[in-house]
Amino acid sequence: MHPHQNLIDRLKEKDQEAFAKLYDAYSGAIYGVIIQICKSEVMAQEVLQDTFLAVWNNAGTYDAQKASFYTWLYRIARNKALNAVRNSQTKVIQNQESGVYESSEEEQKDDNFADIKGSLEKLKPHHRKAIELIYFNGYTHREAYQEMDVPLGTFKSYIRQALKQLKENYQKISILLLALIHVLR
């Protein structure tokens, strides 16, 4: 059972309080992902707002059997962020073609957003890059292996190994906790 199951059920019934609580619980995590894809705070804020509006409007379609709440939220956010990035790129190209100067989202991109923390930091550089491209930058597999300049098969094995490593890291933390409880006993 999901720890927020009660809130999710209430959200489906348009309970604003539940929505606010779920926002508090997930907005930071999902904003971190969005900001990595958009590389622009202004754009990321719009995407975050759009994402949670979609959560509010489409909560009824969420099916816990298919995916966790976070996965559902992530899919919405990733889609919206990728669309926003594509739109802004089209705008830049149009502006360049028409010769009109306009401060674009592109120019506001800040490389500081690329600072990745936590378990991802501990991965080998190529594993980490593969995960970053797919998960945080919203690349498709095809775009990502071309970006990394490796064969698709190799890229897929990077992803697999990276995920395995991440899982093991998280398990290590769990084991450490269990060991601690055991020692305290």
Binding site: Q16, G32, L48, Q49, A67
Partner: peptide, 27 residues
Amino acid sequence: EQSMEKLAFENAVTPPAHIKEDLLKII
């Protein structure tokens, strides 16, 4: 799913407070 969720929480960024206020107004 769990790995990806943990990864996101490790890299969480607090969004500006006005977004929540705006959202609550909109809904």
